[in-house]
Computed example of a mutant assay.
Amino acid sequence: MAALDSSMQEGLLVDRAWFGRQGIESTAVDYYLRSGKIESLVHGLYRKPGPPLKWQQVVYSLIVLGHDVHVGHLTALSYHGYEHTLKLGVAQRIRLYSTRSLPSWVGKVDIGPGFIKMKRNLFPDGSIGLINVSFGTWDWPIPYSSAERAFIELASTLETREDILQAKLMLEGAANLRPMLLQSLLEACGNIQTKRLFLWLARTIGHPWYKHIDISRINLGTGKRQVVSGGTLDAQFLITVPKEVQDGQQEPLF
């Protein structure tokens, strides 16, 4: 039992391959199962018996099992204190970014509120704008998007008038974003529409940090982009945006 006790922490989810890397043979795993030292959650996934799982334990376990994942988008914005603008009473699924497909067991483990794997990879340098947040008894480091990165991630998924107005409400409360980090993130971001939409929101709101962003260093591409249908064309960033939001630099879309 010494090998199991010393290597498998409470709350960690592991598979047979993980046991093998710890030098624990398959026959020993079967013994631990029969004796109740570990339990099977779904086929091929194990943990020590204990209290109900938390979603952070699932995320850290993915990292231990070799997945490059981080918590981002609305989940990270909630961690950074912007949850008061989210819909009250609605359980938000955990937004995860991963460089590859997540194992099927992520959707089978009985844990609320569940996970969403975000599809768009915005940053070729995956580590830019990430922070580690300690969790649990062992201070497990879980990568989260900084508020700056999370707002850009949010901008990448805005498709409707309601989405944009909600994002604007959230960004209005973000007076303390760091312009140097935003500059680095926007220069590294590979999605043209996302950058234009974030910068439009930032300009419209007018936080002081926006004035410190050097737009000339950011690749914004060419041509017009339609974000919302029937909207107004912004003359600077050449995207269609909701008519309700005006700051003097929109023009009718003919």
Score class of each variant (00 low, 15 high):
residue 3 A to K: 15
residue 4 L to A: 12
residue 7 S to D: 01
residue 8 M to H: 09
residue 8 M to T: 01
residue 9 Q to S: 10
residue 12 L to I: 11
residue 13 L to T: 07
residue 13 L to G: 04
residue 16 R to M: 13
residue 19 F to Y: 14
residue 22 Q to P: 03
residue 26 S to H: 07
residue 26 S to D: 09
residue 28 A to N: 05
residue 29 V to M: 15
residue 30 D to I: 08
residue 31 Y to V: 11
residue 34 R to D: 14
residue 35 S to W: 10
residue 36 G to R: 11
residue 36 G to C: 13
residue 40 S to E: 15
residue 41 L to P: 05
residue 41 L to V: 09
residue 41 L to D: 04
residue 43 H to L: 09
residue 51 P to V: 03
residue 51 P to Q: 10
residue 52 P to I: 00
residue 52 P to Q: 01
residue 52 P to T: 00
residue 53 L to R: 06
residue 54 K to E: 12
residue 55 W to C: 04
residue 55 W to R: 09
residue 57 Q to C: 03
residue 63 I to H: 06
residue 65 L to N: 15
residue 70 H to S: 09
residue 71 V to W: 04
residue 72 G to Y: 04
residue 75 T to G: 02
residue 79 Y to G: 00
residue 84 H to A: 06
residue 84 H to Y: 06
residue 86 L to Q: 08
residue 87 K to N: 02
residue 90 V to L: 14
residue 94 I to N: 01
residue 95 R to A: 02
residue 97 Y to T: 03
residue 99 T to Q: 10
residue 99 T to M: 05
residue 99 T to N: 11
residue 99 T to S: 14
residue 99 T to R: 14
residue 101 S to G: 12
residue 101 S to L: 13
residue 102 L to F: 11
residue 103 P to V: 11
residue 106 V to H: 01
residue 107 G to W: 03
residue 107 G to D: 07
residue 108 K to P: 01
residue 111 I to P: 02
residue 112 G to W: 03
residue 113 P to R: 00
residue 114 G to I: 00
residue 114 G to Q: 05
residue 115 F to E: 03
residue 117 K to M: 12
residue 118 M to I: 07
residue 118 M to S: 09
residue 119 K to N: 12
residue 121 N to R: 15
residue 125 D to F: 08
residue 125 D to V: 10
residue 127 S to W: 04
residue 129 G to A: 11
residue 134 S to W: 06
residue 137 T to Q: 14
residue 139 D to S: 15
residue 144 Y to L: 13
residue 146 S to D: 09
residue 146 S to C: 12
residue 146 S to T: 15
residue 153 E to L: 10
residue 153 E to M: 12
residue 156 S to H: 12
residue 157 T to M: 14
residue 158 L to E: 05
residue 158 L to P: 02
residue 160 T to N: 02
residue 161 R to Q: 03
residue 161 R to H: 03
residue 164 I to F: 11
residue 165 L to T: 00
residue 167 A to N: 02
residue 169 L to C: 03
residue 170 M to Y: 01
residue 171 L to D: 02
residue 171 L to I: 15
residue 172 E to K: 08
residue 175 A to S: 15
residue 178 R to M: 09
residue 178 R to I: 10
residue 178 R to G: 05
residue 181 L to M: 15
residue 183 Q to S: 08
residue 184 S to C: 03
residue 185 L to R: 06
residue 185 L to I: 06
residue 186 L to I: 05
residue 188 A to F: 04
residue 192 I to Y: 00
residue 192 I to K: 12
residue 198 F to W: 14
residue 199 L to N: 07
residue 199 L to W: 08
residue 200 W to T: 05
residue 202 A to L: 06
residue 203 R to Y: 13
residue 207 H to N: 13
residue 211 K to C: 01
residue 214 D to A: 08
residue 219 N to A: 11
residue 221 G to K: 13
residue 222 T to Q: 13
residue 222 T to S: 14
residue 225 R to E: 07
residue 225 R to C: 04
residue 229 S to I: 05
residue 231 G to E: 02
residue 231 G to D: 00
residue 234 D to I: 04
residue 238 L to T: 08
residue 239 I to A: 11
residue 240 T to F: 08
residue 240 T to L: 10
residue 241 V to D: 07
residue 244 E to N: 06
residue 244 E to Q: 14
residue 248 G to A: 05
residue 248 G to P: 02
residue 249 Q to G: 01
residue 252 P to L: 14
residue 254 F to W: 09
